[in-house]
Simulated assay, not measured.
Amino acid sequence: MALSYSTIQDVDLRVQPVDEVLDRVAPALQTRFLRDTVVRKRRSVGARTERDTWVRVERRPLAKITDQGWNGTEVAVRLKGVAMPVWRQCVVWQDEDGPVGWRADETSLLPAAPVGSAVLSNAPELPAEWWTGLNASLDALAAHATGRVATPDTEVITQDLVTTSIRTVFSEGFDTTVRRWVPAHADLNWANVTAPVFSLFDWEDWGNAPQGLDAASLWAASLAVPALAERVRQERHHDFESRDGKLMTLFVCSKILGPHAHPQDPRREPARRTADQVIEELQAG
């Protein structure tokens, strides 16, 4: 299959034609798609199948596929105690037109609908059981051991990335060295969790990351709804109170306040206030 795109990096599957991709995947997985269920995102497209499963197809430049591969959804099957869809099978191929890989993973259906977009502007209705499920899953995930390294936004998270991201926005005066690395989902936002039944999906980027990355990511996605952001902090207080959790708070704030951030983002002011407080705490030791 050949897909004609202007460059390797600038493809947005929300606007590019995807029928040819789906036509390739369906027979490879021996199923058919329900085309009225197709969901398109920037670098992935998904659809429900006739056998009541879900297939997510991702496009990724080969340069963004690390030595560990990009089979996160597949290898996440060994993560016990984490609420997620059940992985079934996959198909992987290289694009004929350039250094681009495609991967389609078939999983069970979600137990409920996604909460919303990645970043929320209105408070969702989340029962107490939802927060219990979130905490149980994140705690169970962090208790595992893995050789994988998390790739948030398809970029391998390293000490250098953490330091550079923080220093680009915030001043000197505190140590940015991460002390504890634990398994993390690495893309925890409101588009990747379901409610009222909690489940966490889209596992392609999971791996070791500084403690608190997931909690900080969900908090950052909640900042336009102050009460929700505060609830996230309360529920994951042991992450936020840790030194690495403070660094991860600055790490996610750097994306909101950095040079490429949107100037009208309603999260900017609360992110700035929190960052100032966290920096004081880090400087105080």
Rank of each mutant, 00 (worst) to 15 (best):
P99L: 15
P99A: 15
P99Y: 08
V100G: 08
V100K: 03
V100I: 15
G101W: 12
G101A: 15
W102D: 10
R103D: 07
R103T: 12
A104G: 13
S108K: 00
L110G: 06
P111V: 09
G116L: 05
G116T: 09
V119W: 14
N122A: 15
A128D: 15
A128K: 09
W131G: 03
W131K: 07
T132R: 15
N135R: 14
A136I: 01
A140T: 04
L141G: 09
A143L: 11
H144C: 10
V149D: 01
D153P: 00
T154Y: 12
T154C: 03
T158H: 08
T163N: 12
E172I: 05
G173T: 09
F174E: 05
T176C: 15
T176D: 05
T177W: 03
V178A: 03
V178R: 01
R179Y: 05
R179Q: 14
R180D: 09
R180V: 12
W181T: 09
W181K: 09
V182M: 04
H185W: 06
A186N: 02
A186P: 04
N189V: 05
A191P: 02
V193A: 05
V193C: 06
A195C: 08
A195T: 12
V197P: 00
L200K: 01
F201Y: 14
W203K: 01
N208L: 15
A209M: 04
D214Y: 11
A216I: 07
A216W: 03
S217P: 00
L218T: 03
W219T: 03
A220G: 11
A220C: 10
A221G: 01
L223R: 14
A224H: 07
A227I: 06
A229W: 03
V232A: 06
Q234D: 09
